[in-house]
């Protein structure tokens, strides 16, 4: 294992970089004037996550987590739906997944490469690995809690991987 492979995400990426990536994505994808504000609010009782994995010199995932109602509002904004049109579960999963995908792709571009990006997944967030291999930005969108987490892989994320430091 090389020194680079052993680096944790905090040595490769800081919260400001994650925020600057979100600053580009929100107006382009969520809508004009929309922003991910890096000021934490109380976390919701129930959450849903969307994530993409990154495989390469650094292995892990980029995870977007919020309340189901926030995910629905995000989908409505991304899809520009107006009443009486309503978004269904598939729309919500698709929109949240695409946000995670674009976040993940842009975060991958600032990490050592070459790396590959997995397809978006939705559900309960994967468990985090080492505590020092996590870069998390707790923030809000339209006053609702939203968290972007860049976290190192665990054996559960990459069962056959051998490059993840234990």
């Amino acid at each position: 294992m090389t020194l680079q492979e052993a680096q944790s995400i905090t040595a490769l990426l800081d919260q400001e970089t994650v925020q600057s990536i979100a600053d580009e994505i929100w107006p382009a994808l969520v809508g004009d004037g929309e922003a991910f504000v890096p000021v934490p609010v109380a976390p919701p009782a129930e959450v849903v996550s969307a994530w993409v994995t990154i495989s390469g010199p650094w292995d892990g995932a980029v995870v977007l987590t919020c309340a189901p109602a926030t995910a629905e509002a995000l989908a409505e904004s991304v899809l520009m739906t107006r009443p009486p049109t309503v978004v269904d579960d598939e729309d919500v999963a698709d929109a949240l997944g695409e946000l995670a995908n674009v976040l993940g792709g842009n975060i991958k571009s600032v990490l050592p490469g070459p790396s590959s990006l997995g397809l978006p997944q939705i559900g309960s967030a994967p468990t985090t690995g080492r505590l020092d291999d996590v870069c998390r930005v707790n923030g809000q969108w339209r006053g609702q809690s939203l968290t972007i987490t860049v976290q190192g892989a665990t054996p559960a994320l990459h069962p056959s991987g051998t490059e993840v430091p234990q």
Partner: peptide
């Protein structure tokens, strides 16, 4: 696409893509 590594862009252009636009 979100794929913005130079190597990926070169690969796509070499395969026959005419242009490349990075998301977002």
């Amino acid at each position: 696409t979100t794929e913005s590594e130079t190597g990926q862009i070169v690969k796509a252009l070499a395969a026959g893509a005419h242009e490349y636009l990075i998301k977002p």
